[in-house]
Amino acid sequence: MPHRKPPTDQPAQQSEPRDAAEWRRELKLPSERGASRLITEDLLEQLGVHGWSPSDIFAIHLAAEEAIVNAIVHGNKLDPGKVVQVACVVSPTVARIEVADEGSGFDPSSVPDCRLEDRLDAPNGRGVMLMRTFMTRVEYNASGNRVLMEKQRPPAEG
């Protein structure tokens, strides 16, 4: 009589308890438009599981989306031979997202401030600024093709 497969075949993240202190995920994304969804859906779910508020989840989602789209479109220039590496950590107090592309990088300080009067109606250049505003910490490596973003939440919030 056939036996059911033991549950050990399931991916690790599914067998973890829902109140796990920390969720980690590393993924290589193809350099295609829309690929961010391969990580953001799980990220959003885990932020909810770990008790982040809807407005924090919105903020982290926006920052992650902007960073990944920048890496795919501006970093890897949609080159199918290049990947974007994404690493996420979510706990009840910290959400950390690291995004690295295989492009030549850029100087984040060279992006003009979109809030300046003569730049207000420029259609581009808001992503990096939104990332900096919505996250507690945003750091680029020296060449500018890797960004580490972190949002911290006081444990006693609410």
């Binding site: 989306e65 902007e66 789209v69 109606d121 259609p123 581009n124």
Partner: peptide
Amino acid sequence: VEFLSSAALGKLITLDR
């Protein structure tokens, strides 16, 4: 509408123009 990215903002700005 629950979410929009900066690319969507760009379209709204161009539309406004």
